[in-house]
Amino acid sequence: MILETDMFLAEHRASGRYLKSDFHARPRDGMAYEPYYWLVSNPFAADVLYSRRGWEMTFASEKNGWNLVADHFDIVPRPGCKCCGSTNIMLHIDMEKDFRDHPSIRCYKHKDRNPCAIEGCQRTTALKGSVRTTDAWLCSEHWKRFCPPRSARRRAYRSFFNKAKKLGLTSKDRWPADLEDGYWRFWELLIRNARARHAATGALDPSEINRLFGWTE
C-alpha cells in the first residue's frame, strides 16, 4: 500500500481544502497578469509542487503576505494510486468523499487490483468483486512475517475456517453472522498489529532491499 507520492499540496487546516491559483489579466495597469487564490475540495484540481521545500519557501516569503498565513496550512502528499503511488489520471474517484486517504483511488494499470495492506509494499492481488480497499489482503511475504505458520495467530485464523467446515460451509459460502463478524474483527486486529509492527521495525527488510536492487544472496 502506497501512502505518499512525490507531489505535494498546501492543505488549509480549518477547512481541509487545498490551495489553488490562477491569473487575472490586467493590461491597463502595465501588468500582464495578477495571481489570485482560492480553496478547492478536489486535491487533483489544486496547485502541486514536487517537493515540500517548495511550499516551505512559498510560506516563508513576505511577498503578498504568505508568511502571515503559513500557520494556516499543512504541506501534504497529493493522493495517488494506492497500489503504486502513481499520480496520473485516477479512476473510480467519488468526488463527494474525502480524498486524503481514499482507498479506492487507482491508476489505469491497477484499476482491477488491491494492494498489500502493509505501507510501502507494491505487491497487489486481483480485485475480488467490486470493493477496492487497502486492508483486505497481505502478500505472501508479509503474511508469513505477521501471521507465521504454527503461530497462535495462524491457529486463530484457521479456526474460523475449521468452524465453517464443521457446518458444511466453505469460504465462498455465506457464513453465519456471528462467525463472519468474528472473522472480520480478528482480521482488523491482525492488520492493525501488522502495520504497527512494520512501522516499528522499518519499511524494508534485507530481502526487500535485495529485490529492489536486483542483488542475490
Rank of each mutant, 00 (worst) to 15 (best):
E62F: 05
Y50M: 10
G129S: 13
S159N: 08
S171N: 11
T87R: 03
A117H: 01
A156P: 02
S171V: 09
K97S: 15
G80Y: 05
S171A: 15
S140Q: 11
K109N: 09
Y108I: 11
R158V: 10
F146Q: 08
I118V: 05
D74L: 04
T134R: 10
R113W: 06
D94E: 07
R155E: 12
R100I: 06
L169H: 07
S151V: 08
K172D: 09
N64C: 10
K144P: 00
L49K: 12
S51F: 12
R78L: 14
L91Q: 10
T124C: 08
P77M: 05
S151Y: 09
N114I: 04
D74M: 03
K165I: 13
T133P: 01
R123E: 15
S159C: 09
R150A: 04
G120L: 07
I118P: 01
I75E: 02
K166C: 07
R78Q: 08
L167A: 05
D112F: 04
K144A: 15
F73T: 15
W55S: 02
K165E: 05
K63Y: 03
A117G: 12
S140D: 15
T134L: 03
Q122V: 10
C81S: 02
M57N: 06
K109P: 00
G168E: 09
K163D: 14
I75S: 06
Q122P: 05
R145K: 12
N67V: 11
V131H: 11
C116Y: 00
S130M: 13
L49A: 12
S86L: 04
A156E: 14
V76P: 00
T124R: 06
I93H: 13
I89Q: 05
C81T: 04
V76I: 14
S151C: 06
Y50F: 09
D94S: 10
R150P: 10
N114K: 12
A70F: 01
A126N: 15
M95V: 14
V69P: 07
D112A: 05
P149N: 11
S51R: 11
G80P: 07
K109D: 06
W143V: 00
P149L: 15
M95A: 10
N67E: 12
I118D: 02
C107K: 01
K172M: 12
Y157L: 06
D101S: 14
K82N: 05
K109Y: 03
C107H: 00
L49C: 07
T170R: 10
I75W: 01
H142R: 13
A126W: 02
P115F: 11
V131M: 14
I105M: 09
H102S: 14
W55K: 00
R155F: 06
G80R: 03
E119S: 12
K82A: 06
F59W: 01
H102C: 13
K128R: 09
L169M: 03
C84K: 13
R52A: 04
F59M: 01
K109S: 11
K165C: 10
K97V: 12
R150W: 12
P79F: 06
D98Y: 15
A117P: 02
S140I: 04
S130I: 04
L169S: 02
F73S: 03
G85C: 08
S86N: 13
R150V: 13
K165P: 15
S130F: 08
L138A: 02
I89D: 14
T134Q: 08
M57H: 15
R132S: 07
G168Q: 01
L91S: 15
A60D: 09
F161P: 07
P79T: 08
R100Q: 04
L127Y: 14
